[in-house]
Design a protein around this nucleic acid. Structure first.
Lengths: 213, 213, 213, 213
DNA sequence: TATGAATGAGGATTCATTCAT
DNA sequence: AATGAATGAATCCTCATTCAT
C-alpha cells in the first residue's frame, strides 16, 4: 500500500534541497544526484515528482517568487497610505526570510539563467511586472504618472541592485542597511518633487548631477 | 619558424567568442566546442592558449572588467569637479560599448558564478572596491564622510540594479534612461542634503518614506 | 526496487575484462571503452562501481594478488615440513591458473606501473614482503638466518624472473619447466650448504663462479 | 646555413630525455611534449629526427640494449676461461651504468610493452637470444649440453628477476648484492654437478626441494 | 635545422534519464 | 511510492602529428 499524500512533502523537500544545492555548489553544478542526496531520497524520485530536472528548477524558481509574493501581499494588506504601500514593497524585499544567503544565491542564479530559458523568463517577467505596477499605482497618489513610472523603475532597480550586492558580497550589507538605502532613494525623489513644485515633472533634459549642484 | 605573435590575437578572438557564447546559450552551455566554433578555431587551441576552460572564463571576466575600468579611467581623467567625477562613473557604466546585450548577459553570468569560484570572486571584489572608493572620494567633497559612503553604496547598487534590469529585460531599458535613473538618485540624495542643511547627516533613525513625506 | 546484489557480479566482470584487455592491447591501451565493451556493459558503469579507471586498475591488481595469495595459503596449509613450505611457494607461483598468458601480461604491466602509482606500489610492497617473509621463515629451519634471507631473496628473484620470461616470450617456457628451474636454485643453495658444512655461512667475500669451480 | 652534424647530437639528447621521462612519469605518460621539454628542444623536432613517437621509443630501447651489449662484449673480450665468461655476463648485467634508477624503470617499461609491439618484441627476442646463447656456449665447457641450456635459462631468469626487484623496490637491492645472488645460483648449480658426478645430467624427475634435503 | 601554432581524434568522466523490480 | 542499476551522449582535456614560417 503506497504512502498517501507524499507528493507535497516530497516536492517541498526537493525544492528546498535545490535551493541549498545551488547555494552550495552553483546552478550548473546542482546535479540531480546532489539534490536528491541532500533531500535524502533517490535520484529517480525527481523524475517521478517533477518529470525532470528542468521542471524541478522551474518549480524552485516559482517557489522563491511565490514566497516573496506572499510576503509582499501580507504587508500590502496592512498598509493604509500610499507611502506605507511603497514601504511595504521595500520591507517585503528585505524581509529576513528572503534576504539570506541561500535564497540570494539561488535568486541570482535564476536571474542569470532567465535569458536562456523561456519558462524562467516568463516567470521573471510576471513577477517584475507585478512589483512595478504595484509601485506605480502607489506612487501615482504622490506624484505625476510619468514620475510615478520613473520612480517605480528606479526603486525596483535599487532593490535588485541591493540584492545583487548581498549575493556577491554577503558580508557587505545587512537587511536593515539595505532597507535604509532603498528608503533614501524614495526620500530623495520625493524631495526633488517638493523642490520642483507639485505640478511639474522633473525635466528629462536636465544635466543631472551637475545641474543639481 | 611558425607564425609569431598569434597569442594576443587568438586570446582576444577567444574571449570575444566566450562573451558571445554566454550571451547566446548561457554560462553553463558555453562549452569549449561552442566557443571554439564561434571563434573559428579548433577546440584544442583553448588549452594551448589558456590552459583550460576555467582560465578562459576568468580571462574573459577580467577582460570585461578591464574594458569597464578603461572606460571609467578615461572619463575620470576628463572630469574636473566632484560632480563631474560622480557623473563620469555613471556615464562609464552605461557607455554604449558596455551597456549592450552580450556584455550584460555575460556580466550577469559571471556575477552569479562569483560565489562559487574563488578566482572570479577575487576579481569581482577588486572591481567593486575600486568603484566604491572612487565614488566615496568624489562625494566627500560634497557631503559628510558618512553620507558619502552611504550615497556611494546606494549609487553602486543602483547602477548594478539597472544593469541587472537590462540583462533580464533587454527591451525595458536603454542606456539614456538608465543614466537618467542613476542621476535621479544622486540628485535626490543631494536635494535631501540641502533640505537638511549642509552640516547635518541624514538621520539614520528616521522612519523612511512615511517620515520623509 | 532495482536488481539487488549486482555489485560483486559487475565488479568481477569488469576486473576480468580489465585483465583480458591489458593482455590483448597493453596497459595504456586498456581504455574504459575497451574494458566495458569486453565486459558487455556500458562505459558509465565503471564509474558507478569503481569511481574511476584508476580505482578499477587498483582493484584488478588487488584481485590478481589476492588470487595468488589464496593459492599460496592453500598450499602452505597442506605443507608439513620446511622443505614442503618452500616448495608450496614455488608451486603456487606456477600454478596453471596463475601462470597463463593473460595473467602474466597483466602482472608485468602492473609491475611496470608500480613506480608511478603510490596505490599500486603499496599493494606490490605488501605482497613482496609477505612472500619473502614466508620464505625466510621456512628456510630458517634449514640454514642460518643470514643464508635464509639470502636464499629467500634469490628464490623470489628467480620466480619473478621466470614470470617475466614467460610474459615476454610465452612460448619459451612452461609451468613445469619454470617450477624445475626454481627447484634447481633451492637444490643448488642447499647443496652449497652441505658442502660448506652446516655451521658456517657462505663466505660473502668469495670470488663467485671462479672460486666455486 | 644549417648547423652540420646535429643529427647524432639531437638523437642522443632525445633518447636520454626519453629514458628520463619514462623514469619520472611512466611509459604511457612520457609524452612528446614532456620529452622535448626535457631535452630543451621543440616538440616538432622529434618527428624531424625520428619520424614519430613510436620510432623514438624503439630507438630508445635499442639504445638501452646496445649499451648493455657493449658492456657485455667488452667484458667477454677480457674473459679467458668459461667461468670468467659466465661471470662477465653477470657483471655486465649489474654494471653501475646499467643497474641504476632511470635505466631500470625504462627497461621494465619496455619489457611490459614488448608483448604489444612487434618492433619492441623483435628487439627483445634478439637480445634475449644473444645472452642465452652466450651463456650456453660458456657453460658447455663445464657441464653437459642439456644442463648448460638449463643453467643458462636459469641464470638469465635470475638476472631478469634481480633487475625487476631493483626496478620495483629500488632501495631493497644494490648491484653488489645482485651480483652475489646471481653467482650463488651458478655456484649452487655447479655444486649439484659435482655431487651428482661429472658425467650425469641432473635427474629431471627428481622431487626437487624435498629430494635435496 | 628548428619552431610552436594548429588540428582533431580519442581519452576519462559526468550526468539526466529510463526502467525493472 | 521508491530505488538504484544501467545507459550513452556530451563535456573537458590530452596528445601525436602536421605544417607554414
Amino acid at each position: 500500500m503506497p504512502k498517501l499524500g507524499m507528493q507535497p512533502i516530497r516536492r517541498k523537500q526537493l525544492i528546498d534541497a535545490t535551493v541549498a544545492a545551488i547555494h552550495a555548489h552553483g546552478f550548473a553544478e546542482a546535479t540531480v544526484k546532489q539534490i536528491s542526496a541532500r533531500a535524502g531520497v533517490s535520484s529517480g524520485i525527481i523524475h517521478h515528482y517533477f518529470g525532470g530536472k528542468d521542471a524541478l528548477l522551474a518549480a524552485t524558481m516559482r517557489s522563491l517568487l511565490t514566497d516573496l509574493q506572499r510576503e509582499l501581499v501580507a504587508r500590502l494588506a496592512a498598509a493604509e497610505t500610499p507611502q506605507a504601500r511603497v514601504e511595504a514593497v521595500i520591507d517585503a524585499s528585505f524581509a529576513p526570510d528572503q534576504f539570506s544567503g541561500a535564497v540570494q544565491t539561488a535568486w541570482l542564479s535564476f536571474w542569470a539563467q532567465t535569458p536562456h530559458s523561456p519558462t524562467l523568463s516568463r516567470l521573471a517577467q510576471v513577477y517584475l511586472g507585478r512589483v512595478r505596477s504595484n509601485l506605480r499605482a502607489s506612487l501615482r497618489a504622490l506624484v505625476s504618472d510619468q514620475r510615478a513610472a520613473e520612480i517605480a523603475d528606479g526603486l525596483a532597480a535599487m532593490i535588485d541592485g541591493l540584492w545583487l550586492t548581498a549575493a556577491v558580497s554577503p558580508t557587505s550589507i545587512d537587511p536593515e542597511t539595505a532597507r535604509r538605502r532603498a528608503r533614501d532613494y524614495i526620500d530623495g525623489q520625493l524631495a526633488l518633487e517638493r523642490a520642483a513644485g507639485p505640478s511639474r515633472d522633473r525635466d528629462e533634459t536636465a544635466d543631472g548631477v551637475a545641474g543639481a549642484a
